[in-house]
Structures are given as structure tokens and as C-alpha cells.
Design a protein around this nucleic acid. Structure first.
Lengths: 133, 133
DNA sequence: CAGCATCCAGCTTGATACTG
DNA sequence: CAGTATCAAGCTGGATGCTG
């Protein structure tokens, strides 16, 4: 019998995020990191230029966006298309894998956005039972 | 900034992660954070005690696990069940909302685990084209 | 066992300035 | 426009020690 039926999360994959040394953990962090998630989410709608992206992801600094983009490009989730014009024009877009990842991320984001009232209510309940700190 | 112009599909949601001040961004960070994601993933299989969780999430320190658990409990994603026995026994389990979140998170995690070979290959390609740094 | 309090090294981040 | 370089500050997170 196949144990994966009962514990689908323990498929015998070679990679396992729960293990400290697994490289998948690093990629998960690029993807879910503060700016990684928002960058992938923004690019899911279509390709964007550097400064468009910066405006879309409210609050990201030039440096962090650049850094985030490099990490995602390196992991094969984002494709960078530079045109050697003057002024320069660089478009960023998701790769097929990037799209798959972004879809799941967006699913999570939408779930959260749709349940924020519950979260906020839970927060008040929690803070209330402990008295003000 | 009004992102609804570009995200017609979420026009009527009161919360929007792309906006810097939106509380949903904070919750997204608790959920997707380094330890938040792994903690939710571990608890999706069933309730666990503090030290069981610590062992399951390879590499987490006592302090970070405690901190993570508090944030998730406050957001209403994790329920803490303490028994006043001696020695103390405390079980953590996901709330219904926590399960929904964990499911999506695990979907993402499994996708990544299953595609790590692609990611690693992309990495080598990327590093190769730039010469060693 | 299940945590909290404290200390502190170091990584992350944001400003600012500069380049092609 | 599309970034890179540099630097200070602040937050993260690990180690340690203690409580109930």
C-alpha cells in the first residue's frame, strides 16, 4: 500500500523544505519573502518594467527590488528582457514555472485578503484576553 | 495609490496586500515568513506539542518558534491548548482558517519541492553566464 | 516540559549618491 | 530609465540562563 495516500506531504521526493539543509527552503524564502511574493504577484498580470514594478509594489526600495528580481531570475521564475536602446528599457515577466508559483501565491493572498476581518477579530480577542501590554 | 485600476478582479475587496499600509500584508508575512510557513505546514498533519514542533521544523530556535506561534495564534490561525498538568502539556493545532491557509501553503511548497531540479538548473545557467563571482 | 528575559553579533534594509 | 555602491541603523535571531 501507498502511504502517500494518507500523508501526501511525505511523498518520497528528493527535496524537503522541513530539512534545514534542503535548497528548496532557500527558494521558498525567495518566493514568499516580503518582496518576492509581491513581485511575483504583480508580474502575474503581465510583464512590467523596473519602475512600473516599483510603483506597483508599494514601499519597496530600488535596492530591494533589484535584489529580489535577481534572486527570482536566478531561480528561473522571472525572465529579464533588456533592450539596448537609449534610454534603456527592461521588461520583467514570469517564466512558466514563475506563473505556476504566482498562481498559488495569489490564491493564498486572496484567501487572506478575503478573511482579514476574521483575522482582525481574532487579533482583538487575543489582545483583549491578555489585558493591555 | 489605487491599484484597483489594474486589478479589476479585486475591485471590491477592502484589503489589498500591495498597499503598504494594509494589515493583510502583515498577516501575509506571518504566514509566509521563514518559520510561519513551516510551522503551519507541520501543524497541517495534526496537533503537535511545543518540542515536537521544534524537532519537526528543523533549525528553528525556541525563541523563534515561540514568537511564531504567538503571531499565528493572534491572527487566529493556530489554537493553543494548555493542560495544567505537571509537567505541563501544551498542544498546538490549526484553526479552520489555519487549515485553509496551510493547504495553499503546502500546495506551493510541494510545487517547489517537485520543481527544484528546474530551479537548480536555472541557477547553474544563471551563474554560468556571469562567470564566477 | 514549556516557555520568558536578556544580551549582542550580524544580516537586512533604506537613504543617498553615482554610473551607463 | 535602470540600475550599482556605500554606509548607518535597526531588526532578526541564536545562545544562554531562569521560572513554574
Amino acid at each position: 500500500m501507498d502511504i502517500t495516500q494518507e500523508r501526501p506531504e511525505v511523498q518520497d521526493l528528493p527535496y524537503n523544505v522541513f530539512a534545514k539543509a534542503c535548497p528548496s527552503r532557500g527558494t521558498l524564502e525567495h518566493v514568499t519573502g516580503r518582496w518576492g511574493a509581491l513581485t511575483l504577484g504583480a508580474l502575474h498580470e503581465g510583464s512590467l518594467r523596473f519602475n512600473e514594478l516599483r510603483r506597483r509594489v508599494d514601499g519597496v526600495s530600488e535596492k530591494m527590488l533589484s535584489q529580489t528580481l535577481h534572486a527570482l531570475e536566478r531561480d528561473g521564475l522571472v525572465h529579464r528582457e533588456a533592450q539596448p536602446t537609449n534610454p534603456p528599457r527592461v521588461d520583467y515577466e514570469l517564466t512558466p514555472l514563475g506563473h505556476e508559483v504566482a498562481e498559488r501565491l495569489l490564491g493564498l493572498i486572496h484567501l487572506l485578503e478575503g478573511r482579514m476581518d476574521d483575522v482582525l477579530a481574532a487579533r482583538e480577542r487575543y489582545d483583549g484576553t491578555r489585558g493591555a501590554l
